[in-house]
Design a protein around this nucleic acid. Structure first.
Lengths: 193, 193
DNA sequence: TCAGTTCTGTATCGTCCGGTATGAAACTAG
DNA sequence: CTAGTTTCATACCGGACGATACAGAACTGA
Protein backbone atom coordinates (compact mmCIF):
# COMPACT_ATOMS: atom_id res chain seq x y z
CA UNK A 1 0.00 0.00 0.00
CA UNK A 2 1.83 3.02 -1.32
CA UNK A 3 1.82 6.76 -0.92
CA UNK A 4 2.52 7.81 -4.46
CA UNK A 5 3.94 11.08 -5.64
CA UNK A 6 2.79 13.95 -3.47
CA UNK A 7 0.73 16.84 -4.85
CA UNK A 8 2.74 19.86 -5.85
CA UNK A 9 -0.13 22.25 -5.09
CA UNK A 10 -2.61 22.98 -2.34
CA UNK A 11 -6.13 22.10 -3.52
CA UNK A 12 -7.66 24.73 -1.25
CA UNK A 13 -5.67 27.62 -2.66
CA UNK A 14 -6.15 26.26 -6.17
CA UNK A 15 -9.89 26.25 -5.57
CA UNK A 16 -9.72 29.82 -4.31
CA UNK A 17 -7.97 30.83 -7.51
CA UNK A 18 -10.61 29.06 -9.57
CA UNK A 19 -13.33 30.82 -7.63
CA UNK A 20 -11.75 34.16 -8.35
CA UNK A 21 -11.65 33.45 -12.09
CA UNK A 22 -15.25 32.21 -12.24
CA UNK A 23 -16.32 35.23 -10.20
CA UNK A 24 -14.64 37.66 -12.54
CA UNK A 25 -15.33 36.02 -15.90
CA UNK A 26 -18.42 33.91 -15.33
CA UNK A 27 -18.82 30.22 -16.06
CA UNK A 28 -19.19 30.56 -19.81
CA UNK A 29 -16.48 33.18 -20.10
CA UNK A 30 -13.89 31.05 -18.34
CA UNK A 31 -11.81 28.50 -20.26
CA UNK A 32 -9.78 25.65 -18.87
CA UNK A 33 -6.64 27.52 -19.84
CA UNK A 34 -7.81 30.50 -17.77
CA UNK A 35 -8.34 28.15 -14.86
CA UNK A 36 -5.11 26.19 -15.05
CA UNK A 37 -3.21 29.43 -15.56
CA UNK A 38 -4.68 31.04 -12.47
CA UNK A 39 -4.50 27.88 -10.39
CA UNK A 40 -0.88 27.25 -11.31
CA UNK A 41 -1.49 23.64 -12.28
CA UNK A 42 -1.85 21.80 -15.54
CA UNK A 43 -4.86 20.16 -17.03
CA UNK A 44 -4.53 16.55 -15.86
CA UNK A 45 -3.98 17.75 -12.29
CA UNK A 46 -7.16 19.78 -12.50
CA UNK A 47 -9.15 16.85 -13.77
CA UNK A 48 -7.69 14.47 -11.19
CA UNK A 49 -8.39 16.83 -8.31
CA UNK A 50 -11.70 18.41 -9.29
CA UNK A 51 -13.37 16.22 -11.89
CA UNK A 52 -14.13 18.53 -14.77
CA UNK A 53 -15.11 22.13 -15.41
CA UNK A 54 -18.67 21.66 -14.17
CA UNK A 55 -17.66 19.94 -10.95
CA UNK A 56 -14.94 22.48 -10.33
CA UNK A 57 -17.51 25.22 -10.72
CA UNK A 58 -19.86 23.61 -8.22
CA UNK A 59 -17.02 23.29 -5.72
CA UNK A 60 -16.07 26.92 -6.29
CA UNK A 61 -19.69 27.96 -5.81
CA UNK A 62 -19.84 26.07 -2.51
CA UNK A 63 -16.72 27.85 -1.40
CA UNK A 64 -18.22 31.16 -2.46
CA UNK A 65 -21.32 30.55 -0.37
CA UNK A 66 -19.45 29.43 2.71
CA UNK A 67 -16.70 32.04 2.35
CA UNK A 68 -17.41 35.50 0.95
CA UNK A 69 -21.14 34.78 1.02
CA UNK A 70 -21.28 33.55 4.59
CA UNK A 71 -22.70 36.88 5.77
CA UNK A 72 -26.06 35.80 4.34
CA UNK A 73 -26.53 32.97 6.80
CA UNK A 74 -25.01 34.97 9.64
CA UNK A 75 -27.39 37.84 9.04
CA UNK A 76 -30.32 35.59 9.88
CA UNK A 77 -29.14 35.50 13.47
CA UNK A 78 -29.66 39.23 13.92
CA UNK A 79 -32.26 40.00 16.58
CA UNK A 80 -34.74 42.08 14.60
CA UNK A 81 -36.25 41.87 11.14
CA UNK A 82 -34.82 45.23 10.33
CA UNK A 83 -31.33 44.23 11.35
CA UNK A 84 -31.55 41.04 9.33
CA UNK A 85 -32.45 43.03 6.24
CA UNK A 86 -29.87 45.69 6.99
CA UNK A 87 -27.07 43.18 7.31
CA UNK A 88 -28.14 41.32 4.20
CA UNK A 89 -28.20 44.44 2.09
CA UNK A 90 -24.96 45.82 3.46
CA UNK A 91 -23.32 42.44 3.04
CA UNK A 92 -24.48 42.26 -0.55
CA UNK A 93 -22.95 45.63 -1.26
CA UNK A 94 -19.68 44.68 0.32
CA UNK A 95 -19.64 41.34 -1.50
CA UNK A 96 -20.41 42.68 -4.94
CA UNK A 97 -18.85 46.13 -4.92
CA UNK A 98 -16.13 45.75 -2.32
CA UNK A 99 -12.42 46.07 -2.86
CA UNK A 100 -10.10 43.17 -3.56
CA UNK A 101 -12.74 41.01 -5.16
CA UNK A 102 -14.41 41.07 -8.58
CA UNK A 103 -17.49 43.22 -8.95
CA UNK A 104 -20.82 41.44 -9.13
CA UNK A 105 -22.04 38.22 -7.59
CA UNK A 106 -20.97 34.78 -8.74
CA UNK A 107 -24.38 33.32 -8.07
CA UNK A 108 -26.30 36.06 -9.88
CA UNK A 109 -23.80 35.92 -12.70
CA UNK A 110 -24.19 32.17 -13.08
CA UNK A 111 -27.95 32.41 -13.36
CA UNK A 112 -27.25 34.11 -16.67
CA UNK A 113 -25.05 31.33 -18.00
CA UNK A 114 -27.83 30.04 -20.20
CA UNK A 115 -26.00 28.56 -23.17
CA UNK A 116 -26.65 24.95 -24.13
CA UNK A 117 -23.62 23.59 -22.25
CA UNK A 118 -24.07 25.59 -19.06
CA UNK A 119 -27.23 24.04 -17.69
CA UNK A 120 -25.54 22.25 -14.76
CA UNK A 121 -23.74 25.38 -13.59
CA UNK A 122 -26.87 27.44 -13.97
CA UNK A 123 -29.00 24.95 -12.06
CA UNK A 124 -26.47 24.76 -9.25
CA UNK A 125 -26.62 28.52 -8.90
CA UNK A 126 -30.41 28.54 -8.94
CA UNK A 127 -30.52 25.86 -6.27
CA UNK A 128 -28.26 27.96 -4.03
CA UNK A 129 -30.45 30.97 -4.56
CA UNK A 130 -33.65 29.12 -3.76
CA UNK A 131 -32.14 27.72 -0.59
CA UNK A 132 -31.08 31.18 0.54
CA UNK A 133 -34.48 32.66 -0.14
CA UNK A 134 -36.22 29.83 1.71
CA UNK A 135 -34.02 30.34 4.75
CA UNK A 136 -34.84 34.02 4.76
CA UNK A 137 -38.54 33.29 4.50
CA UNK A 138 -38.39 30.93 7.46
CA UNK A 139 -36.56 33.57 9.45
CA UNK A 140 -39.38 36.03 8.79
CA UNK A 141 -42.08 33.46 9.46
CA UNK A 142 -40.80 33.02 12.98
CA UNK A 143 -40.17 36.71 13.60
CA UNK A 144 -42.38 38.20 16.30
CA UNK A 145 -41.47 41.69 15.13
CA UNK A 146 -42.56 41.28 11.52
CA UNK A 147 -44.58 44.43 10.76
CA UNK A 148 -48.30 43.80 10.34
CA UNK A 149 -49.42 43.42 6.75
CA UNK A 150 -46.09 41.89 5.70
CA UNK A 151 -46.18 38.42 4.16
CA UNK A 152 -42.95 36.65 5.16
CA UNK A 153 -42.54 35.00 1.78
CA UNK A 154 -43.11 38.22 -0.13
CA UNK A 155 -40.77 40.20 2.08
CA UNK A 156 -38.08 37.57 1.69
CA UNK A 157 -38.51 37.69 -2.06
CA UNK A 158 -38.37 41.48 -2.10
CA UNK A 159 -35.18 41.58 -0.05
CA UNK A 160 -33.71 38.99 -2.34
CA UNK A 161 -34.81 41.04 -5.32
CA UNK A 162 -33.06 44.10 -3.95
CA UNK A 163 -29.83 42.25 -3.23
CA UNK A 164 -29.97 40.75 -6.72
CA UNK A 165 -30.43 44.21 -8.13
CA UNK A 166 -27.48 45.45 -6.13
CA UNK A 167 -25.36 42.70 -7.64
CA UNK A 168 -26.39 43.72 -11.15
CA UNK A 169 -25.68 47.36 -10.43
CA UNK A 170 -22.28 46.48 -9.02
CA UNK A 171 -21.49 44.33 -12.05
CA UNK A 172 -22.35 47.22 -14.35
CA UNK A 173 -20.05 49.64 -12.64
CA UNK A 174 -21.83 51.36 -9.78
CA UNK A 175 -19.70 52.08 -6.75
CA UNK A 176 -20.14 50.96 -3.19
CA UNK A 177 -21.05 54.49 -2.12
CA UNK A 178 -23.76 54.82 -4.77
CA UNK A 179 -25.22 51.51 -3.68
CA UNK A 180 -25.10 52.51 -0.02
CA UNK A 181 -27.35 55.47 -0.82
CA UNK A 182 -29.74 53.13 -2.59
CA UNK A 183 -29.74 50.73 0.33
CA UNK A 184 -30.39 53.51 2.80
CA UNK A 185 -33.41 54.73 0.88
CA UNK A 186 -34.75 51.20 0.48
CA UNK A 187 -34.35 50.45 4.16
CA UNK A 188 -35.90 53.62 5.47
CA UNK A 189 -38.98 53.24 3.26
CA UNK A 190 -39.40 49.50 3.63
CA UNK A 191 -38.78 49.25 7.37
CA UNK A 192 -38.82 52.68 9.01
CA UNK A 193 -36.85 52.56 12.22
CA UNK B 1 -25.94 49.71 -62.87
CA UNK B 2 -27.46 46.50 -61.74
CA UNK B 3 -29.81 45.16 -59.14
CA UNK B 4 -28.12 41.91 -58.33
CA UNK B 5 -29.69 38.81 -56.92
CA UNK B 6 -32.46 39.68 -54.46
CA UNK B 7 -32.31 38.69 -50.84
CA UNK B 8 -34.12 35.48 -49.98
CA UNK B 9 -34.89 36.61 -46.43
CA UNK B 10 -36.31 39.61 -44.59
CA UNK B 11 -33.58 41.25 -42.52
CA UNK B 12 -36.12 42.51 -39.98
CA UNK B 13 -37.52 39.05 -39.39
CA UNK B 14 -34.02 37.60 -39.22
CA UNK B 15 -33.02 40.21 -36.66
CA UNK B 16 -36.04 39.37 -34.55
CA UNK B 17 -35.03 35.72 -34.59
CA UNK B 18 -31.49 36.66 -33.59
CA UNK B 19 -32.84 38.78 -30.75
CA UNK B 20 -34.85 35.86 -29.48
CA UNK B 21 -31.80 33.60 -29.44
CA UNK B 22 -29.59 36.16 -27.70
CA UNK B 23 -32.38 36.80 -25.21
CA UNK B 24 -32.75 33.13 -24.37
CA UNK B 25 -29.12 32.01 -24.46
CA UNK B 26 -27.11 35.15 -23.78
CA UNK B 27 -24.29 36.54 -25.87
CA UNK B 28 -21.65 34.06 -24.76
CA UNK B 29 -24.01 31.10 -24.88
CA UNK B 30 -25.04 31.76 -28.47
CA UNK B 31 -23.02 30.40 -31.37
CA UNK B 32 -23.13 31.43 -34.99
CA UNK B 33 -24.75 28.10 -35.79
CA UNK B 34 -27.49 28.83 -33.25
CA UNK B 35 -28.03 32.17 -34.95
CA UNK B 36 -28.03 31.03 -38.56
CA UNK B 37 -30.27 28.12 -37.63
CA UNK B 38 -32.84 30.35 -35.97
CA UNK B 39 -32.57 33.06 -38.60
CA UNK B 40 -32.98 30.60 -41.45
CA UNK B 41 -29.96 31.91 -43.33
CA UNK B 42 -26.41 30.75 -43.78
CA UNK B 43 -23.23 32.23 -42.53
CA UNK B 44 -22.12 34.45 -45.42
CA UNK B 45 -25.59 35.99 -45.58
CA UNK B 46 -25.39 36.82 -41.89
CA UNK B 47 -22.01 38.47 -42.29
CA UNK B 48 -23.07 40.40 -45.39
CA UNK B 49 -26.22 41.70 -43.75
CA UNK B 50 -25.14 42.26 -40.14
CA UNK B 51 -21.36 42.45 -40.02
CA UNK B 52 -20.32 39.94 -37.41
CA UNK B 53 -21.55 38.46 -34.16
CA UNK B 54 -20.79 41.59 -32.13
CA UNK B 55 -22.50 43.95 -34.54
CA UNK B 56 -25.47 41.64 -34.85
CA UNK B 57 -25.77 41.64 -31.10
CA UNK B 58 -25.72 45.43 -30.92
CA UNK B 59 -28.45 45.60 -33.57
CA UNK B 60 -30.49 43.03 -31.67
CA UNK B 61 -30.01 45.01 -28.47
CA UNK B 62 -31.24 48.17 -30.20
CA UNK B 63 -34.28 46.29 -31.37
CA UNK B 64 -34.86 44.96 -27.88
CA UNK B 65 -34.79 48.47 -26.42
CA UNK B 66 -37.07 49.96 -29.03
CA UNK B 67 -39.41 46.96 -29.15
CA UNK B 68 -40.11 44.86 -26.06
CA UNK B 69 -38.31 47.40 -23.90
CA UNK B 70 -40.09 50.46 -25.22
CA UNK B 71 -42.30 50.59 -22.12
CA UNK B 72 -39.36 52.07 -20.23
CA UNK B 73 -39.30 55.27 -22.24
CA UNK B 74 -43.07 55.42 -22.41
CA UNK B 75 -43.39 55.11 -18.65
CA UNK B 76 -41.55 58.39 -18.21
CA UNK B 77 -44.54 60.18 -19.72
CA UNK B 78 -46.83 59.12 -16.88
CA UNK B 79 -48.18 62.08 -14.92
CA UNK B 80 -46.99 61.25 -11.41
CA UNK B 81 -43.80 59.87 -9.91
CA UNK B 82 -45.74 56.96 -8.51
CA UNK B 83 -47.24 56.08 -11.87
CA UNK B 84 -43.85 56.28 -13.54
CA UNK B 85 -42.43 53.81 -11.04
CA UNK B 86 -45.51 51.63 -11.21
CA UNK B 87 -45.39 51.35 -14.97
CA UNK B 88 -41.65 50.69 -14.95
CA UNK B 89 -41.92 47.88 -12.45
CA UNK B 90 -44.96 46.32 -14.07
CA UNK B 91 -43.34 46.60 -17.48
CA UNK B 92 -40.20 44.93 -16.17
CA UNK B 93 -42.25 42.03 -14.84
CA UNK B 94 -44.09 41.64 -18.13
CA UNK B 95 -40.87 41.89 -20.11
CA UNK B 96 -38.88 39.40 -18.09
CA UNK B 97 -41.52 36.96 -16.88
CA UNK B 98 -44.21 37.32 -19.52
CA UNK B 99 -45.45 34.64 -21.84
CA UNK B 100 -44.15 34.09 -25.36
CA UNK B 101 -40.72 35.53 -24.67
CA UNK B 102 -37.66 34.15 -22.88
CA UNK B 103 -37.46 34.73 -19.15
CA UNK B 104 -35.02 37.36 -17.97
CA UNK B 105 -33.76 40.57 -19.52
CA UNK B 106 -31.36 40.70 -22.43
CA UNK B 107 -29.69 43.81 -21.10
CA UNK B 108 -29.22 42.47 -17.58
CA UNK B 109 -28.08 39.15 -19.00
CA UNK B 110 -25.49 40.81 -21.20
CA UNK B 111 -23.96 42.70 -18.29
CA UNK B 112 -22.87 39.28 -17.10
CA UNK B 113 -21.13 38.34 -20.33
CA UNK B 114 -17.73 39.05 -18.86
CA UNK B 115 -15.48 36.65 -20.70
CA UNK B 116 -12.44 38.00 -22.54
CA UNK B 117 -14.18 38.11 -25.93
CA UNK B 118 -17.45 39.62 -24.76
CA UNK B 119 -16.32 43.10 -23.79
CA UNK B 120 -18.03 44.89 -26.70
CA UNK B 121 -21.39 43.25 -26.05
CA UNK B 122 -21.09 43.88 -22.35
CA UNK B 123 -20.19 47.52 -22.83
CA UNK B 124 -23.07 48.05 -25.22
CA UNK B 125 -25.45 46.68 -22.61
CA UNK B 126 -23.96 48.85 -19.89
CA UNK B 127 -24.27 51.93 -22.07
CA UNK B 128 -27.97 51.19 -22.63
CA UNK B 129 -28.49 50.76 -18.93
CA UNK B 130 -26.73 53.98 -18.01
CA UNK B 131 -28.79 55.89 -20.55
CA UNK B 132 -32.00 54.47 -19.15
CA UNK B 133 -31.07 55.33 -15.61
CA UNK B 134 -30.06 58.85 -16.58
CA UNK B 135 -33.40 59.42 -18.30
CA UNK B 136 -35.22 58.25 -15.21
CA UNK B 137 -33.15 60.54 -13.00
CA UNK B 138 -33.99 63.54 -15.20
CA UNK B 139 -37.66 62.63 -15.04
CA UNK B 140 -37.51 62.72 -11.26
CA UNK B 141 -35.45 65.89 -11.17
CA UNK B 142 -38.21 67.72 -12.96
CA UNK B 143 -41.05 66.13 -11.01
CA UNK B 144 -43.00 68.56 -8.83
CA UNK B 145 -44.53 65.68 -6.93
CA UNK B 146 -41.29 64.04 -5.85
CA UNK B 147 -41.77 63.29 -2.13
CA UNK B 148 -39.66 65.44 0.18
CA UNK B 149 -36.45 63.84 1.29
CA UNK B 150 -36.09 61.88 -1.95
CA UNK B 151 -32.95 62.45 -3.99
CA UNK B 152 -33.88 62.06 -7.69
CA UNK B 153 -30.65 60.26 -8.55
CA UNK B 154 -30.94 57.85 -5.64
CA UNK B 155 -34.59 57.10 -6.33
CA UNK B 156 -33.82 56.45 -9.99
CA UNK B 157 -31.03 54.11 -8.96
CA UNK B 158 -33.27 52.30 -6.50
CA UNK B 159 -36.02 51.80 -9.04
CA UNK B 160 -33.45 50.54 -11.49
CA UNK B 161 -32.07 48.23 -8.82
CA UNK B 162 -35.52 46.78 -8.22
CA UNK B 163 -36.21 46.23 -11.92
CA UNK B 164 -32.78 44.61 -12.26
CA UNK B 165 -33.60 42.37 -9.36
CA UNK B 166 -36.89 41.46 -10.96
CA UNK B 167 -35.03 40.44 -14.10
CA UNK B 168 -32.72 38.19 -12.10
CA UNK B 169 -35.63 36.64 -10.25
CA UNK B 170 -37.44 36.01 -13.51
CA UNK B 171 -34.33 34.46 -15.04
CA UNK B 172 -34.02 32.11 -12.10
CA UNK B 173 -37.54 30.84 -12.37
CA UNK B 174 -39.91 33.04 -10.39
CA UNK B 175 -43.32 33.53 -11.91
CA UNK B 176 -45.06 36.67 -12.94
CA UNK B 177 -47.50 36.36 -10.07
CA UNK B 178 -44.76 36.00 -7.48
CA UNK B 179 -43.05 39.07 -8.86
CA UNK B 180 -46.30 41.04 -8.85
CA UNK B 181 -46.57 40.47 -5.11
CA UNK B 182 -43.02 41.70 -4.69
CA UNK B 183 -43.72 44.77 -6.80
CA UNK B 184 -46.86 45.57 -4.84
CA UNK B 185 -45.00 45.47 -1.54
CA UNK B 186 -42.15 47.56 -2.92
CA UNK B 187 -44.51 50.17 -4.31
CA UNK B 188 -46.69 50.52 -1.27
CA UNK B 189 -43.70 50.98 1.04
CA UNK B 190 -41.63 53.16 -1.25
CA UNK B 191 -44.39 55.44 -2.47
CA UNK B 192 -47.56 55.05 -0.37
CA UNK B 193 -50.58 56.10 -2.38
C1' DT C 1 16.58 -2.08 -4.31
C1' DC C 2 12.50 -2.52 -6.35
C1' DA C 3 7.51 -3.25 -7.19
C1' DG C 4 3.38 -0.52 -6.60
C1' DT C 5 1.03 3.79 -6.68
C1' DT C 6 0.07 8.62 -7.52
C1' DC C 7 1.07 12.85 -9.56
C1' DT C 8 3.30 15.91 -13.27
C1' DG C 9 4.29 17.50 -18.00
C1' DT C 10 3.76 17.18 -22.75
C1' DA C 11 1.57 16.23 -26.57
C1' DT C 12 -2.56 15.21 -28.61
C1' DC C 13 -7.50 13.91 -29.40
C1' DG C 14 -11.96 15.12 -31.91
C1' DT C 15 -15.08 18.94 -32.06
C1' DC C 16 -16.75 23.31 -32.46
C1' DC C 17 -15.69 28.17 -32.67
C1' DG C 18 -15.97 32.75 -35.43
C1' DG C 19 -15.04 34.03 -39.92
C1' DT C 20 -14.16 33.55 -45.16
C1' DA C 21 -12.83 32.02 -50.13
C1' DT C 22 -15.06 30.42 -54.07
C1' DG C 23 -18.19 29.58 -57.58
C1' DA C 24 -22.84 29.00 -59.08
C1' DA C 25 -27.48 31.27 -59.11
C1' DA C 26 -30.55 35.20 -59.76
C1' DC C 27 -31.32 39.50 -60.80
C1' DT C 28 -30.83 44.47 -63.80
C1' DA C 29 -29.22 47.40 -67.48
C1' DG C 30 -28.02 47.74 -72.10
C1' DC D 1 -28.14 37.69 -75.05
C1' DT D 2 -24.54 39.56 -72.59
C1' DA D 3 -22.00 42.11 -69.04
C1' DG D 4 -22.17 43.53 -64.45
C1' DT D 5 -23.64 43.04 -59.77
C1' DT D 6 -25.35 40.98 -55.68
C1' DT D 7 -26.76 37.03 -53.00
C1' DC D 8 -26.70 32.06 -51.96
C1' DA D 9 -24.66 27.57 -50.80
C1' DT D 10 -20.83 24.73 -49.90
C1' DA D 11 -16.78 23.87 -48.25
C1' DC D 12 -13.14 25.26 -45.72
C1' DC D 13 -9.64 28.14 -42.70
C1' DG D 14 -6.69 28.54 -38.40
C1' DG D 15 -7.40 28.39 -33.74
C1' DA D 16 -9.38 27.44 -29.31
C1' DC D 17 -12.35 24.48 -26.84
C1' DG D 18 -12.94 20.59 -23.14
C1' DA D 19 -10.90 16.42 -22.19
C1' DT D 20 -7.27 12.54 -22.25
C1' DA D 21 -3.22 9.05 -23.37
C1' DC D 22 1.12 8.29 -22.16
C1' DA D 23 5.55 8.31 -20.21
C1' DG D 24 8.54 9.78 -16.74
C1' DA D 25 9.14 11.59 -11.93
C1' DA D 26 8.40 11.23 -6.94
C1' DC D 27 6.88 8.99 -3.30
C1' DT D 28 5.71 4.41 0.13
C1' DG D 29 6.21 -0.12 1.79
C1' DA D 30 8.60 -4.43 1.68
Amino acid sequence: MPGGRPRAFDPDVALDRALEVFWRQGYEGTSLSDLTGAMGINRPSLYAAFGNKEELFVKALDRYISGPGAFADEALAAPTVREVVERLVEGAIELTAGTGTPHGCLSVNSVHACGPDSAPAREAAIACRMAGEAALRRRFEEAPDLPPGFDPAVLARLVHTVTDGIAVQAASGHTREELREVAALALRTLLPA
